[in-house]
């Protein structure tokens, strides 16, 4: 699943066309009388800001036609950064207008129009809340489920108010056909929300899974094996992930992404996680037979069949997608060279230590353990995996391999930059960051 520049360019072009569509709509057909530059600039910023906000409902990483082009992880990074840009553009809209002509403050005056004033004033704290809770969710102590509810609700409210505001002002949307197109875009956004929160869970409800086994890998790390209940299950590519909802209903806010740790060839599906969060710490108490729902598979963290070899740079539980790929390679007698850099704090923290040792015999695999807190007598690598370690340990013929990075943020930042500085192309590097919010 190699990234390709033409495909990335195509999707970026589609995005730009859609983001600019409101401006194009404003200048075609009958147009109103000219107004000062800064008034129209304020309006233009509002239009593109609204377009990006509406497009945020598409870049949620759950569209299977888009995600493989970039990787679901990159789509979510795009979503996150685009949210910051939209925040700036949408707030610049009233700021530029009011700075140009203070009469525009009338839009916030409840004496002129109470409902309009309430809606437009409410958008400002809503946008700030959206930004703060998304960029600093853990710092503000918001749990993931509440964040999802707040994020979905506020986003929809802001887009709804913004688009209704556009029609109400009507300066550039005079003709009924322009209003129709604008309203159509709003309905499209609302459909995406209904699809995500109603239709998709409905489809999942018809394909339940049940827990087959819960296994302790090492203290605080558990593997959950699940099997389909009355259907054929899910085909995934090693390295991908699925969203999991535990319980009898898929209509739940509680939904978390987990990489498959099992081989593509296994009859059952396995996931491995650290019991650190509220959700994963419940895994160890799960009884076989417990119902759950899976949505997926997603993600482009997948080894290309034509690739010459692979380098995995993983830390802690970030080993799970690599484990799925290695187990699949074993099952398929894949003899391509693989190098696994695996960072942990101490030897006791190494998940799958015995199986990795066995895989080194079955595959053309080199495992390089790096410990943050090595015991006396440790002769392996120490400290974070960084550019120096990669320089020392990567063989010269690894330049054409594919690189897979998954682990704690500091390790990912260090190694991503190090690989780029070594001249490795972005097309060869895959990352997986689940802790996006």
């Amino acid at each position: 699943m190699k990234y390709s520049a033409p495909r990335v360019t195509k999707w970026v072009a589609v995005y730009l066309v859609l983001a600019l569509a409101p401006l194009v709509l404003a200048v075609v057909g009958p147009v109103p009388a000219p107004r000062p530059f800064f008034v129209e600039l304020g309006v233009g910023l509002g239009f593109v800001g609204m377009a990006i906000l509406a497009l945020q409902f598409v870049t949620t990483g759950r569209f299977k036609s888009i995600a493989p082009v970039f990787g679901a992880d990159v789509v979510l990074q795009f979503h996150r950064q685009a949210g910051v840009v939209a925040f700036a553009l949408v707030l610049a809209h009233p700021a530029v207008l009011v700075a140009t002509d203070p009469n525009y403050l009338e839009f916030f005056d409840p004496r002129v129009n109470l409902l309009r004033a309430i809606a437009l004033i409410a958008v400002i704290p809503a946008l700030i809340l959206l930004l703060v809770t998304s960029l600093w969710r853990q710092q503000v102590g918001l749990n993931y489920e509440w964040w999802r509810l707040i994020h979905g609700g506020l986003s929809l409210a802001v887009v709804f108010i913004g688009m209704v505001h556009g029609i109400q002002v009507g300066e550039h949307l005079g003709p009924i056909w322009k209003q129709g197109l604008w309203a159509g875009a709003l309905m499209g956004v609302m459909y995406l929300v209904v699809h995500s929160r109603v239709i998709r869970p409905y489809l999942m409800k018809r394909r339940p899974y049940r827990v087959a086994e819960v296994r302790e890998e090492n203290p605080d790390t558990w593997t959950l094996t699940v099997e389909p209940e009355g259907h054929v299950g899910m085909r995934f590519k090693a390295g991908q992930f699925a969203w999991m909802t535990v319980g009898d209903s898929p209509y739940s806010l509680q939904q978390h992404p987990f990489s498959f740790s099992s081989s593509e060839r296994d009859e059952t599906l396995s996931f491995t996680a650290n019991a650190v969060g509220d959700f994963t710490s419940e895994w160890k108490d799960m009884e076989p037979g417990r119902r759950l729902f899976l949505e997926g598979p997603y993600g482009g963290f997948v080894l290309d069949p034509d690739s010459e070899g692979a380098v995995f740079i993983v830390g802690g539980i970030g080993v799970t997608p690599a484990m799925s790929i290695l187990r699949t390679m074993r099952d398929m007698d894949d003899e391509r060279p693989v190098i696994l850099f695996y960072g942990n704090d101490s030897p006791d923290d190494i998940t799958f230590a015995d199986e990795l040792a066995a895989l080194q015999r079955d595959l053309n695999l080199t495992v390089i353990h790096a410990l943050g807190n090595p015991p006396d007598g440790w002769t392996g690598e120490e400290g974070y995996i960084d550019g120096d370690m990669l320089d020392r340990r990567l063989p010269p013929d690894s330049r054409n391999y594919e690189y897979f990075i998954c682990g704690p943020k500091p390790m990912m930042d260090l190694t991503e930059s190090a690989l780029r500085n070594k001249g490795i192309s972005w097309r060869q590097i895959y990352t997986e960051r689940f802790q996006i919010v």
Binding site: Y3, V8, V12, Y15, L16, A19, L20, L23, A26, V27, V31, P34, R35, P36, F37, F38, V39, E40, L41, V43, G44, L45, F47, V48, I52, F70, G71, V74, Q77, F78, Q81, A82, V85, A88, L89, M412, D413, E416, S417, R420, W426, R427, I429, T431, R433
Partner: peptide, 30 residues
């Protein structure tokens, strides 16, 4: 693709959109 690339891509798209909005404003004010 990388986190760093993605941020740059989105920021570049943001700049393009602001420039086009300014062109739009110039055309409308003309």
């Amino acid at each position: 693709m990388l986190y760093r690339d993605t941020r740059r891509l989105v920021n570049a798209i943001g700049v393009v959109l602001v420039v086009v909005a300014a062109v739009f404003a110039a055309l409308r004010a003309w």
